[in-house]
Design a protein around this nucleic acid. Structure first.
Lengths: 199, 199, 199, 199
DNA sequence: TATGAATGAGACTTCATTCAT
DNA sequence: AATGAATGAAGTCTCATTCAT
């Protein structure tokens, strides 16, 4: 993870804001420059072009997500508690950074990310992804179902994003109790449990 | 649901193909016209502008999704079986119509859909949505957890879309057994069950 | 002067209305068709194209102006009274047909009338123009200044149009007394008079 | 009065030339750019759009007209001489700047000037208009008829423009003697004079 | 006669990118 | 390092005109 100058950060933030409001197409470099209070040309000092800017911004945001995950994992000791902590941390991150949420969704599906591999980025699949590792540990423990890590990962993340969007973009605000129910539900889905059906 | 002329359908299909390949921004009206084998002006004869075209295309695709759901619901009698049938039908629809999947994802997050309410459209929340009703029935039966329908809806749909994307855009192809595991997992999440924790 | 069918008249009127509101550029054939309640193609049955339509409309309107002049000239016997009668008739015609006034002004200055000769059309300069003849009579009588008829013509007409515009497009409404003053003033300008300067 | 860059002036001049030759409709921005020897985008760097360009061009031209009037008023001392000087200066300005003459005529009647108030612009009616003031002085002196200034203004200006057009666009070229007759005629119209009718 | 769907050239405008300062 | 005027390709959309019915 390289470090970024004040101006680069300003450019990142300006881009995020504008993309949330107007999408990629509605976010010309000139508008980014204006919002970031730099000249258009300045953006081109730091980034080769628009594609580059978006790509680096994507990495920049993913990095934050990883940080959040790592921090959350430190909080609790027990596995299920750790899981809940991580899930909620991610959820809260999206809630508090709706620009990043939208940016991700647009970026992943757009041809800016030329190959769709980004959908599940290297970061997620390699050792470097804390969540990926965390799931593997759970499987080894016998606490998570013994199925492909990718599947469990999606089971966790897709819901997390979807609920964040429900909260942000609809009237249906989720409160703490709702969140708890949801996390439990997700836990039900992924956990290795003995289960007795209703009679 | 209005009916569309041959030319309109051709325009819809051309748009879907191009958007999947290149995104909204990379899909100029001229390219749509060319692929649909009509003149540019013809598109404007049927649709007020690009926004209108995308909006109507969205409705057109949603309609198909609803149809698929309705058909799938007819197949089985038992509730859980009906649920699995619907989930798999939707999953297969996305698998076989990746253009629609991508289009949805882009459209929902883009400023083309001016109000984000589209995220959970009227169709989903009203009686007219077969899935919405289906969930309510399950809650009344005591077969589904007694929590807000919106939450259960997301639990089902977000996974479905996410797995379709996993299958389509990564090397990780899901086979029939995988799908079965996933559906069971989702059922675990939403079903009202007596559960005995691991000992 | 050929005669026009009901539909042609409807097309003329629609054009006049639209041109007044939006200018030539803002008046597409489709809008004319709609306002005239005919199909676009129908206009092309009657007129070769837009240029033709405008040209014939110009002639159509000029003809009305000539008629108005002829009628007004019949009313009075004395020369000066005849003059006043004609001037006021033209002024009233413009006041009551602002669409025609605007249409004239736009058409005369526009490249639709390919050669600027239209500025002073044949009709004005030939025997067929009643006003032209009327001025010549005045000169022969010794009641009008003995200068080129064109100059006298302009002295009369340019004011007439200008005052009509003042009345129509500004807050400055002209009443009957104002008009009388103006006509007298114009008479002062063109009449052959003995004049004693202020001392 | 703001100042304009070399490029803006070039754009103005290109527009004037093209509008005279082909009208507003026949003057695409691309043609303006080409004639002004700038890129299309450059026009949009200076002007928000075509409307803006035309509006600013109108103000630019009006300003020149005001300057001409002011200069002409300085030349002579006696009131009537001053009047003649101004009238002829304006006439010559139009003769030598036929593009501006045509541009004015088109602009004033077109929907580009959204409100027709432009017909008699602020400049003409306020203290800032030298001609307006000049007329008021004449009225106070008792040298001009004691009628509304607007009316006298039109009496002067409408003729001036009309004769310029006669000269420019017809075979009827006006020489110095003609002009003198015309100015005297206009003076007859507006001046407060003792007059003895023909006997 | 009359219709109006269809055409496609061309208008206006945007915007990623460059470059002289 | 920073600026922002300038560029021009490319996009959206309009509209005069045609033609099968």
């Amino acid at each position: 993870m390289e470090t970024y100058s004040t101006k680069q950060i300003a450019i990142f933030n300006a881009t995020l804001q504008l993309v949330e409001e107007r999408g990629f197409h509605g976010t010309p470099m000139s508008a980014v420059a204006e919002k970031a209070k730099v000249a258009t040309g300045t953006i081109y000092h730091y980034f080769k072009g628009k594609d580059q800017l978006l790509k680096e911004l994507y990495a920049f945001c993913r990095h934050q997500l990883v940080e959040v995950t790592i921090e959350a994992a430190k909080e609790k000791n027990e596995y299920k508690e750790k899981f809940k902590s991580i899930w909620i941390a991610l959820y809260n991150f999206y809630i508090n950074n709706s620009q990043i949420l939208i940016f991700f969704e647009l970026y992943i599906n757009s041809p800016f990310s030329k190959n769709k591999q980004n959908y599940k980025t290297e970061e997620d699949t390699t050792e470097s992804s804390p969540l990926y590792n965390f799931i593997n540990i759970g499987k080894d423990n016998g606490q998570l179902k013994n199925i492909t890590t990718d599947i469990l990962l999606i089971q966790i993340l897709s819901n997390c994003v979807a609920y964040a969007k429900l909260h942000l973009f609809t009237q249906h605000n989720l409160n703490v109790e709702d969140i708890d129910i949801i996390v439990e539900m997700t836990w039900d889905a992924i956990s290795q449990s003995n289960k007795v059906e209703n009679q």
